[in-house]
């Protein structure tokens, strides 16, 4: 079987399209590359959707934590503490079984017991909490002069937030937020190891890498392939965030623009 046929058969295997049976013996390098790459679709899907959706909740949470009223501040603080203080792995397990028992009483919740929705909800809340903390830190370090200038111009309420506070917060938080994004993509690999079932063996990249390592007793091929894909993904994320960073800082003089420093990694 040529490599092109393998790609045709397995490139979309993680979505349930193509060959039904996974390869069982005589694993070729091409099969491993294709299947693990196919699994990356899930990692990108989880990471991207959670990141985009989490961004908005994170902004709200950060504003809540910075609010003066305890009715807004306390819930935001607790939300951040619960999701940052406990392992994501346990959160996945707990959410899965919570959704299972909810499904028992209310059938509406049945999509949540499958990975595409249930795990996404957990990742969304989790990244919102981590990002919320980063944004909160940025809010705290907005230069006093900026807000005073806004007051002097007679800006208040929504206009003050939209034109002064939000852009400054984003600019300050951006390096930290880049790390968080990389971090989130890495965290997506936990999904299929934490209760959420991979129906018909439609799993993510790590699921397939683990499959090959189990079948061949040789971790030295599938895991480096996985690493290769993830380094590629990390580079893409850094690139995209770097472009946005340049745009956020475009009004600053050249020498005061901060280059993006990336210090990724570390589990949650």
């Amino acid at each position: 079987m040529s490599c092109w046929e393998t790609i045709a058969d397995y490139a979309l295997r993680s979505q349930g399209i193509g060959e039904r049976l996974l390869p069982r013996s005589d694993f070729t390098l091409c099969q491993q590359f294709t299947l693990i790459g196919s699994g990356m679709i899930w990692n990108i899907y989880f990471g991207l959707v959670a990141l985009v959706a989490g961004f908005f909740l994170a902004t709200a949470v950060a504003m809540g934590k910075a609010a003066r009223s305890p009715f807004l501040r306390k819930p935001a603080e607790w939300f951040i503490f619960v999701f940052r203080g406990s392992p994501l792995f346990i959160q996945f397990f707990f959410a899965y079984f919570l959704f299972l028992s909810l499904k028992g009483s209310y059938p509406i919740f049945s999509p949540l017991t499958s990975a595409w929705a249930g795990a996404l909800v957990v990742l969304f809340l989790n990244t919102a909490a981590y990002t919320g903390e980063i944004f909160y830190g940025a809010l705290q370090s907005i230069p006093k002069g900026d807000t005073e200038a806004a007051d002097a111009y007679g800006l208040s309420g929504w206009n003050r937030f939209r034109r002064v506070i939000f852009p400054t917060m984003l600019r300050l938080a951006w390096p930290g937020y880049t790390n968080e994004a990389i971090f989130l993509f890495h965290a997506t690999t936990l999904v299929f190891f934490s209760g959420f079932p991979a129906t018909q063996q439609r799993g993510d990249a790590l699921y397939y890498a683990n499959y090959f390592a189990d079948k061949t007793f040789n971790p030295f091929i599938p895991y480096p392939i996985l690493a290769f894909y993830f380094i590629l993904l990390t580079l893409v994320v850094i690139g995209v965030f770097g472009i946005i960073n340049a745009r956020l800082n475009r009004h600053l003089p050249q020498d005061r623009r901060r280059a993006l420093k990336v210090r990724p990694q570390i589990i949650r």
Binding site: L190, L206, A209, A213, F217, P219, L226, I231, P264, I267
Partner: peptide, 20 residues
């Protein structure tokens, strides 16, 4: 090397690799 790759992959990798 250890940074930049999901650590769970390392956990799965090293256990077999060290054993072997």
């Amino acid at each position: 090397v250890v940074r930049g790759i999901p650590d769970i992959a390392f956990f799965l990798f090293f256990v077999i690799a060290l054993d072997q």
